[in-house]
Amino acid sequence: MANLKDLKVRITSVRSTQKITSAMKMVAAAKLRKAQENAEAARPYAERMERMVASVGASVEGIDGAPAMLAGTGKEDTHLIVVCTSDRGLCGGFNGSIMRQTRKMIIELRGQGRTVKLLCVGGKGRDGMKREFSTDIIGTIEGIGRRGVEYSEGRDVAEKITSLFEAGEFDVCTIVFNRFQSAMTQIPTTQQLIPFAPEEPEDGAAEAAGAKISNNESGPSPVFIFEPEEQEILADLLPLNVAVQVFQALLESAASEHGARMTAMDNATRNAGDMIEKLTLIYNRTRQAAITTELVEIVSGAEAL
């Protein structure tokens, strides 16, 4: 039978853990709301950017010397995977699901005989991938989104990717991140950044818009005037598009992180509550047993006289 003092110490310790987890839950909830607002507010820009790249891209399609970022390098030998995780833990399966997805992807790509390189955003991703793929990690970026994700942070990550691409370090770049659905669910998502590949539904929407515009024209695709030339616009637009997509992914990832943490901490708080209840019950029983024993001793002592 556990002794009373030990039980008391355990109850106190669980209670203080519960205070911490419940505080973390509140903080995560507050941050989640902010992050969610930011992610939603940034959506129009990303959507319009994608539409614009699609229309410029369509007009240079098939032309020789189309930028490599749009058309690809012509081969798919080396893949760069950008892994978006958090810097801090205590957020449930948030980082685990990303790493599982990435590992699956790496194994699949290797099976096809391709080289894989990893760029880790967030310290947890690096720690997790280091064990198995330490030689493939070519860089880590930490400290993003300390006080809300800023556009410049997304741009910095994108510039790193772009300069690696220009140095011929990889042919295809994919970003793996958690897409925010609700505080309970985050969906690990992979999205191709380079070469430019519009998302399926987005593509359909862009085509629909294009078709609408070209109604009164003879050609199947709308004819745009470009100022300056298509190639020059693309040279600016494509890196910017990468920056925007990365920024969007970081925002989604940040919102997901807070959501995951909130849920995890909510569970932890509830578990701590259950544990306190159980321990208190044992404590009370033990105390009562001790009192009963003492009484029995006194009574039997008195009877013996």
């Binding site: 507010a41 940034a42 129009p44 300056p228």
Partner: peptide, 27 residues
């Protein structure tokens, strides 16, 4: 007319005319 920054949609309204500083001159 829509003006969008990476952080958010700033303006979305119907206007009579808008003058934009293009790279090769205002239009």
């Amino acid at each position: 007319f829509e003006l969008v920054s990476p952080e958010k949609l700033l303006i979305s309204e119907a206007v009579e005319m808008v003058v934009v500083p293009g790279a090769e001159g205002d239009f």
